[in-house]
Amino acid sequence: MIDATPFNYPYDGNLNPAATALIVIDLQEDFLSETGYFALQGYDPSPLRAILPTVNALIKACRAAGMHIIHTRQGYRGDMADMTPYEKWRRAQSGLEGTDVLLRSAKGFQIVPEVDVQPADIIVDKTCNSGFTYTDFEHVLRARGITHLLFSGCTTDVCVHTTLREACDRNFQCLTISDACASGDQYAHAAALHMVTVEFGVFGALADSKAVLAGLAKLAEKSG
């Protein structure tokens, strides 16, 4: 088990690597670079970049344990055929009209090279904050028998939390890794982490990377 709040993860003590996936959300150039979407909104992307070593340590440990690694990327089609009038309006209000920011045809859509992505990893592309909306994410999880999800990535208060909430509603067992998530708004980041634990874990459990790595080490000892 992994030491977590408000209960240890998973609740029944059965941490099965084959049924568990580390979800790495939206660690893309457009969110982490100084010239991408996030920076153009006036946010400092440095807190997002700061989690990369932690995320990579988790990827390495989870991969070694036999867990699945699933990355998500957010962006629209290059021809914007999947963008509603409202989304185009918001894009214009944000000063992005005429740019290739958050378009799948652009470099900014790609996961930053610092993240350890391997050919065996799964990548899910999305247009919305949730990894479930208009994607095959849930189908992939069900097809592979994945029932337990470990959450990392950005941003804690938006794409991570939205995907987490929908995962909980679909009865996946969820753990958010506090220092493997980040936001440009530290108040929102802290609030989002706190919300995981209210009502005795209404959105699952919360742990830091140290606890997760320690739990995986114990799992390796047990299986060895």
Results as ranks from 00 to 15, higher is better:
2 I>N: 05
5 T>D: 10
5 T>N: 05
8 N>S: 13
9 Y>M: 02
10 P>H: 04
10 P>Y: 05
10 P>W: 13
13 G>N: 10
15 L>F: 08
21 A>G: 12
22 L>N: 14
23 I>P: 07
28 Q>L: 13
30 D>N: 13
31 F>A: 04
33 S>E: 14
37 Y>L: 11
40 L>T: 11
42 G>D: 07
44 D>Y: 02
46 S>P: 06
47 P>E: 08
49 R>A: 13
50 A>P: 05
53 P>E: 11
54 T>N: 15
56 N>L: 04
59 I>M: 04
60 K>R: 12
60 K>E: 14
62 C>H: 07
63 R>I: 01
67 M>Y: 00
67 M>T: 00
68 H>P: 02
69 I>M: 09
69 I>T: 05
70 I>W: 10
71 H>D: 00
72 T>V: 11
80 M>C: 11
80 M>T: 15
80 M>Y: 11
81 A>H: 12
83 M>G: 14
83 M>K: 10
84 T>R: 12
85 P>L: 09
88 K>F: 07
96 L>E: 00
97 E>R: 15
97 E>S: 15
98 G>V: 12
100 D>M: 08
102 L>T: 07
102 L>R: 12
102 L>Y: 09
104 R>P: 03
108 G>F: 08
108 G>H: 13
109 F>E: 13
110 Q>K: 14
110 Q>M: 08
110 Q>T: 08
113 P>Y: 06
117 V>P: 01
117 V>Q: 06
117 V>E: 03
123 I>H: 03
126 K>V: 00
127 T>G: 13
128 C>Q: 01
137 F>I: 03
140 V>Q: 13
142 R>A: 09
147 T>G: 02
147 T>A: 03
149 L>T: 00
150 L>A: 09
151 F>D: 15
152 S>Y: 12
156 T>N: 04
156 T>C: 06
159 C>I: 14
160 V>M: 01
160 V>H: 07
162 T>F: 03
163 T>M: 01
175 L>D: 04
175 L>N: 11
179 D>N: 06
183 S>G: 03
184 G>K: 01
185 D>Q: 05
185 D>S: 06
188 A>F: 10
191 A>K: 09
193 L>F: 04
196 V>Q: 07
198 V>F: 04
203 F>R: 07
203 F>C: 13
204 G>K: 03
207 A>R: 00
208 D>A: 01
215 G>R: 04
215 G>H: 10
216 L>Y: 08
217 A>N: 10
217 A>Q: 10
219 L>A: 03
